[in-house]
Design a protein around this nucleic acid. Sequence first.
RNA 1: AGGGGUAUAGCCAAGUCGGUAAGGCAACGGAUUUUGAUUCCGUCAUUCGUAGGUUCGAGUCCUGCUACCCCUGCCA
Length: 552
Amino acid sequence: MSESSNFIFNEIDKDLANGVYQADEIMTRFPPEPNGYLHIGHAKAIFINFSVKEKYHGRTNLRFDDTNPAKEDVEYTEAIERDIAWLGYKWDNLFYASDYFGRMYEYAVELIGKGLAYVDDQTQDEIKANRGTLTEKGTNSPYRDRSAEENQTLFREMKEGKYPTGSKVLRAKIDMASPNINMRDPVIYRILFETHHNTGDSWCIYPMYDYAHPIEDAIEGVTHSLCSLEFEDHRPFYDWLLDHLDDCRVKRPRQIEFARLNITNTIMSKRYLKRLVDEGRVDGWDDPRMPTLSGLRRRGVTPAAIRNFCYESGVAKANSVIDKAQFDYFVRDDLMKTSKRVMAVLNPLKVTIRNYPEGESELLDIPYNLDEPEGASRKVPFGRELYIEREDFMEVPPKKYFRLFPGNEVRLMGAYFITCESFVKDEDGNITEVICTYDPETKSGSGFTGRKVKGTIHWVPSGAIEMEARLYEELLNEDSDAEDWVERLNPNSLTVCNALGEPSLANAKPGDLYQFVRNGFFCADSRHSKAEHLVFNRTVSLKSSWQPPKEA
RNA sequence: AGGGGUAUAGCCAAGUCGGUAAGGCAACGGAUUUUGAUUCCGUCAUUCGUAGGUUCGAGUCCUGCUACCCCUGCCA
């Protein structure tokens, strides 16, 4: 495996070579706002920050960027910590931006003292109107030239709660004619009478992201502040602020932007995911249909799969959309190595083995992985009746169909060869039963080499179907969890949210989960104590539905 | 007077000094197979958005175009 390389590492290497930072002080941070659950897109940001820590033997902090009490909640901080830990990352320190409110306030006072910030009494609409447009410069606020003394008094009174929400703001005094709108005297403090999840009611003014973030980074000693592309335009202010704060001028972090992760047909917007939850379109943030880390976890995706996916996806500045198949590959790849394999039937068809003694049965010992016959195994009852997948039998087989059809012999996986003798149809012409014979000589593991078959098919014991599960859950046979498996496998009860291209679950296709299962993986709900990954392979292609080859 | 970014295969993506296009996914061949899976071999860019220029030599340097993304929250 080649050493990974990306432009961020290159930039850090340059900074190290130029002596901008010392090798032992490299520090990054993952700074989510606790206003929702983490999703697969965040996993990439987490991966990037922690990969810097690993490569440079540095540190990475988790910092809750909680500067807007109106949107944040402890429910989210807890979920975020849980999800990062699940992904397998350990932060060096846990910080809250809100812990720095005091210092942020003092820095604002410093700015005012230097004539670099002022209190603006304009209304929100006036500020907006005076900001100008993309092509026209803005105009100065009539309050722009207040004296430092007046501004100090006003700002202190804002903090003391003398003015109502929204009545005044503190603005940095830069340049209303700047072509970069972020430099047109950005608002850095607003009045907000809201209870904060961390600081309670001790503040009624809160710093804006643009103001708070550079200070947070500087206070913590972050060297590389990695964020997504849309903040490129904010970098000039990030640098301006640090340039004008005495404490931060010398040792200061560097902001580097990268492209967000996008996956085809996958919603990657916290705003919209929150709507799905709020409107009850899903069971919660951890609904298996959600692209959240908690949802993926419940769906059977492993942390290693996500990490490998991020690693192989690369880090760049070009906007891109990764094919979902690439994500699926890494899930399959990891599950294939680590999971137990079992048999399942989604659409059952009864098979009667005519020459198997009536009323008798035997317990077959079937290894979870037939490539490792000495490995762990489970007992599966085998008798005169059993069920196979309906797709695995055809009355009139097309060319190159290797499974069951009249006269053909196949192996029942882990059991015996069976040969189809005939089949039964109901009045409507539907096939209801297949009659076969088996060859006792061909028992799995017996070393039989007399002849070969081209097809091997899955099957489940007759009792399995009676659970209405259409799934025989072999692993948990003494456990009541089987019903959850029913729930998870029923194509009509669980669709795949990722198929959505727009904000409506109504567009999800009922067959999506089925497809998902056929694509090779699912697992027990990880909220259950006995949760365990199982790989469910079928005799058909796991990558795509088997299609009869075209006639030549 | 707009500003900031990005363009390398169907999809991601490497390509720090100019030296003759990594790797992964997908796809397609073929071998093995008690899962049509896995595994294993092999194929898949005479060309890097485009038009010129410099050079013995350009994905890399220069100039001009084009396309797409982001920015006018008291969100982050």
